[in-house]
Amino acid sequence: MLSFPFIQRALLVGCIIAITSAFLGVFVTLRNMSFYTDAIAHSALAGIALGLLLHLPPLWATILFCILLGLITAYVKQRSQVSTDTVIGVLFAGGIALGIVLISQLEGYRADLFSLLFGDILAVSWNDIIISAGLSIIIVLFLLATGKRLVLSTFSSDFSYVRGVNAKAIDYAFFVITALTIAVGIQSIGIVLITGLLIIPAATSRNLARSFKQLAFIAALVSVIATLGGITLSYYFNLPSGPTIILVSVALFMLSLLHHR
């Protein structure tokens, strides 16, 4: 199996995205932002369609569109009295509707909707890997530099403000970096399943970890095991790779429920 270059590329990009999304997922679950990640991922459909309409590279169009949505969500969240859930619900529905409308306007384009929705990790090129690795380094460096502030501000924005942490600025940065991670992950794991890779390893780790350091480490480990296991199973049993990765994550999550802290 390992002699095939497409498998080597899949395993490499899989591990990169697994580690990045697991680290980010730890903070996403800590900040109760699971629904936001789902909304951004689904709205990314509009970004992809927009890229195709304007003849922009789909990955960069998706990244720009997701970041824009992240900024809008953070802005509305801070400026409006409407609950964050509601804002995200509007974003979710609006994004996916816009995506479908835009796709319907693409003349002669037969969207490979299946690969958009569920990703195609076996089709990634070396160029994709370099871009994913570069962006992942930015994301992980951001999380290392701001991780403590991200955690402190979850307790209370006033409490952290007194310690010199600007919760609003951190909020904006986190919304943007989450959108970026989703955009990077979509090409491998797809719109529908990227949320799974963000949430499930972190949730599994929560069942096992007894400290924050353990939480981050176990989440990354679970994510890598699920990705390597998923790709291997998909190769030997001829299964779609993205969904298989998520199914392995779910199985690991179930196992973690058996563990009593």
């Binding site: 403590k148 502030r149 402190l152 400290s211 924050f212």
Partner: peptide, 18 residues
């Protein structure tokens, strides 16, 4: 899963690496 020790460390030095 943030321990008391980690919480105090976060509060004392909210910036920089863990």
């Amino acid at each position: 899963p943030v321990t008391v020790r980690e919480f105090i460390q976060l509060y004392i030095t909210p910036r920089g690496l863990w």
